[in-house]
């Protein structure tokens, strides 16, 4: 599916999104931003759950009002904190989602449910009640329901929140597999999730696009700007502008501080930048850095 977001703006009490534009036709796009940056609102607009005040979203050239339910059937949506009725089994839940997505033949439903359960690694737990599943398993049911009907666009909103490290790793692997033949939009504020899965990145800051493009270019944008200082204490110049500090930890000699700057302070050495450094640089440059 070719997804085209054109100049989308949305206001609730205050402006949440301001002129968001981007296009994608395959692979995972990581949607990164701090809490309140507008990620969930953007996901809801793309999912057709909310309307933009201005701008439009096109799905293979069609807008939501042209054929809303046909578009929805091509979208799989995993909302934040997916939940379901506690006493319904995994299999029964997926059967219901199959029916909701107009898969009417019992054989087809059975095949679809088995395929998705294998895909998300829940085939052994098909008879378990939803309420008896762990957080990670519930998220897997969430992704399975989103995948039913093989949607061309998969929207996943903060899918790894509350998962343990093993579950998170497995979930990222699953998303990478699913992105082979569709568009996956992964919204998160966990930088690591994006670093491990996405080819492209959309960084939101206060409702605006701060960056859209591939990950490596984004990371290269802070090359030569990330430094590590080792000394007895945090230097005064950094203390005055704490938002330049990326990390700080106590060592036997004093402190080790990673920070962003055009020119380093004394006793600093350059550091290989990461996605997290680039992200922090991108979302802070408007306030402190410049």
């Amino acid at each position: 599916m070719k997804l085209k977001v054109c100049e989308v703006s949305k206001r609730y009490d205050s402006k949440v999104l301001d002129g968001i534009s981007f296009e994608v036709d395959q692979g995972i796009v990581g949607l990164l931003g701090e809490n309140g940056a507008g990620k969930t609102t953007l996901m809801e607009i793309i999912a057709t759950l909310a309307r933009p005040d201005t701008g439009k979203v096109e799905y293979d050239g069609k807008e939501r009002d042209e054929d809303l339910y046909a578009i929805r059937r091509r979208i799989g949506y995993l909302p934040q904190k997916f939940d379901f009725f506690a006493k319904i089994s995994v299999e029964e839940a997926l059967d219901y989602f199959c029916r909701l997505k107009h898969i009417s033949s019992p054989e087809e439903r059975k095949r679809e449910i088995e395929e998705k359960l294998v895909q998300v690694g829940l085939i052994e737990h098909r008879k378990k009640q939803f309420g008896a599943l762990s957080g990670g398993m519930k998220q897997r049911v969430g992704i399975a329901q989103a995948m039913i009907g093989d949607p061309a666009l998969l929207l996943v909103d903060e899918p790894t929140v509350g998962l343990d490290p093993h579950e998170r790793a497995a979930f990222r692997q699953l998303l990478s597999e699913l992105a082979a033949d569709r568009v996956v939009l992964l919204s998160t504020h966990i930088v690591e999730d994006i670093a491990m899965t996405s080819e492209r990145l959309l960084v939101l800051h206060e409702g605006r696009v701060n960056y859209y493009g591939d990950l490596s270019t984004f990371i290269r944008s802070v090359e030569g700007k990330v430094w590590m200082y080792r000394g007895p204490s945090v230097p005064e110049s950094l203390r005055r502008r704490p938002s330049l500090i990326l990390s700080s930890q106590a060592t036997a000699e004093g402190v080790e501080v990673r920070y962003i700057a055009e020119t380093p302070i004394e006793r600093s050495v350059p550091v290989e930048p990461t996605l997290e450094h680039a992200y922090m640089y991108a979302n802070r440059k408007r306030t402190d850095y410049e």
């Binding site: 999912a47 759950l49 904190k81 939940d83 989602f97």
Partner: peptide, 14 residues
């Protein structure tokens, strides 16, 4: 209406 009902069930209902 819980969030999951709204976003994953009612979402598909005309």
């Amino acid at each position: 209406v819980q969030v999951f009902e709204s976003k994953t069930i009612l979402y598909y209902l005309r």
